[in-house]
Structures are given as C-alpha cells and as structure tokens.
C-alpha cells in the first residue's frame, strides 16, 4: 500500500433506479472510504437526481438507497459538489436536495453542510486538482 494520499473524485452523471450505476457507485465510495484517501463526489447532469429529497421506492420494489448518502459524513466523505447548471436545467434548487451534513473535526466538531453548489467552471477547477477520477 502506498503511503501517499491521492485525491479521488467520483463523477456521478446518472439518475438512480433506472439503471444500477448510482447504487454501485455509492458502494465504491463506501468501500473506498476505508482507504483514507482525499475523496470528493461530483453530481452533474442526471446525477443530481441521486441526491434529491423524498425518494420513496416502495411502489417499484427496489431498495431506496438515498438515506445512505446521509451517512457519508461519518465516513469523512464531506466534499459533495453539485453543478449549478445541472440543477438549474432540471428546475431544482439546493432545497430539493438531501440535507447532507458532517462534523468538522478542525472546527470543534461543528456541524456543516457537505453539499457545495458550484458552477461548471468551478467544477472544472476542482476536477483539475484530482489524481483519480472514477466515473460509472
């Protein structure tokens, strides 16, 4: 195992339930958290639908995995970037998204928002800093 920390970005561009990509991507994030790398998630295009509030899958007989995103903060996954343009194109605002929080150990465990809405150009800068970009 390398002792250097790399910056991992998970790029999510697909809606949940219609295909399995969103769920299996989340499974990678959860396993990857154990490797103590510098992890960030980006939600672009239909990927923003993965983290919308009010998902109720009882009627389709598929497990609702959206509550799992709320646990990411406990795994030190607290950089969750949502592209502003993708939200707006879909008539969504940050209020339509899950309330994802984490406790900042560098700030007396203050509770903070994990979601950061960023413009495409800001996201381009964030992508530019990554060592590994995983897309599913």
């Amino acid at each position: 195992m390398s002792d250097t920390t790399k910056k991992f970005l998970y790029l999510n561009r697909k809606a949940p339930y219609g295909t399995i990509y969103a769920l299996e991507s989340l499974e990678v994030v959860l396993i990857g958290a154990a490797f103590e790398q510098d992890v960030a998630l980006a939600f672009v295009d239909d990927g923003v639908y993965q983290i919308t509030k009010g998902q109720d899958t009882a009627g389709i007989g598929v497990k609702n995995f959206s509550p799992t995103y709320s646990a990411l903060g406990d795994y030190d996954v607290n950089k969750i970037y949502v592209e502003k343009e993708s939200l707006e194109a879909r008539g969504l605002t940050v209020d339509d998204l899950l309330d994802l929080k984490y406790e900042d150990e560098d700030d007396d465990w203050a509770e903070k928002d994990s979601i950061r809405v960023v413009t495409a150009q800001e996201l381009a800068d964030i992508m530019d800093e990554q060592d590994v970009i995983l897309s599913f």
Binding site: V44, D45, E85, A120, D125, D128
Partner: peptide, 15 residues
C-alpha cells in the same frame, strides 16, 4: 446524450 456538452462546460483551457 449530454456528455459532450457537459464535458465542454466542465473542461478548462489547455485540456
């Protein structure tokens, strides 16, 4: 698919 448009939107000069 919007992937090309998204790539154009989220890519930087020099890439």
């Amino acid at each position: 698919d919007s992937s090309l448009e998204s790539c154009l939107r989220c890519s930087k000069a020099g890439s």
